[in-house]
């Protein structure tokens, strides 16, 4: 399996791609925070924030609609917010009978539900933008400069490195199970649910042991190559004047969205 099977990085040579990853991380976080701060029903501000996301996408030379297409990943979670439609007090906009009772959707409830979904939908676009324009090792560097504990960063970087190796390992286990699981065309196959769970559990245990052994092997190999408990990098990652300028522009634009949210 190749890295590209997972990674959503888009190879381009845009201004955004050249930007220091720290600046991009901060822009994304400010954008998400700003969405969270917008009051319910600030439609004009939501529209402006979407405009900002579109602008960021086009400056980064992402394929048109790229952010939009991938942004529905968080939508199933909206199910969790459905209840506010009925529980937020307000004037009823829609009533319908259900089991000899009437239930009503209030206008405030509708506004709150839509606002929650839009906020999350916009924020996901910000996160996709960051991933699409920043290579993962650079992203890790940015987080390190932003005072995330060094050791945690090293662990996540290491995980990223071996994700694909272990995903391959898991695929092999799944393929082996499939190869040994014949089923008649009609009728039930396999044993009881308990038995199936035991097989799956055995596979997980097997994967665990293989991973553990691999980590020991890798550690020995790292020691042999002079590892002293720190992952080193050749990339200096210095915030240049241009990075500060672009970060400043983004902050001003996001502040503008907030102003729109309070005024209209």
């Amino acid at each position: 399996m190749h890295v590209s099977a997972f990674d959503r990085y888009q190879h381009q040579h845009s201004r955004v791609h050249r930007l220091d990853p720290r600046a991009k991380v901060l822009m994304t976080l400010f954008f998400i925070l700003s969405n969270a701060l917008l009051p319910d029903g600030a439609w004009a501000a939501f529209l402006a924030a979407w405009g900002l996301a579109l602008l960021a996408g086009s400056v980064a030379q992402l394929p048109p609609g790229y952010l939009f297409k991938r942004s529905f990943i968080a939508l199933p979670f909206a199910l969790a917010a459905v209840t506010v439609l009925f529980t937020v007090p307000g004037a009823a906009v829609l009533t319908f009978p259900l089991f000899s009772r009437t239930i009503a959707i209030s206008d405030a409830g509708l506004a709150r539900f839509a606002s929650i979904v839009i906020r999350s939908w916009l924020s996901v676009q910000g996160a996709i933008w960051l991933t699409a324009t920043t290579q993962f090792p650079d992203l890790m560097h940015a987080l390190r400069h932003l005072r995330v504990p060094r050791l945690l960063i090293a662990i996540i970087s290491f995980m990223y490195r071996y994700l694909f190796v272990l995903a391959d390992e898991a695929t092999r286990l799944l393929r082996a199970r499939e190869a040994r699981s014949a089923a008649p065309v009609s009728g039930k196959s396999g044993g009881s649910i308990l038995w199936r769970a035991k097989v799956a559990g055995g596979m997980v245990g097997q994967l665990f042991l293989r991973s553990l052994e691999r980590s020991e092997r890798v550690y020995n190999a790292m020691l042999a190559r002079g590892y002293r408990g720190q992952l080193l990098t050749m990339n200096p990652h210095v915030m240049m004047k241009r990075d500060w300028q672009e970060l400043g522009t983004a902050v001003i634009l996001i502040a503008l969205v907030q102003v729109i949210g309070r005024l209209f």
Partner: peptide, 19 residues
């Protein structure tokens, strides 16, 4: 680092296994 990183990758890969 190698131990925790590998184990994190294991959890991720293990989540592919279902029944």
């Amino acid at each position: 680092v190698p131990l925790a990183g590998m184990m994190a990758a294991f959890i991720f890969a293990g989540q592919m296994i279902n029944f």
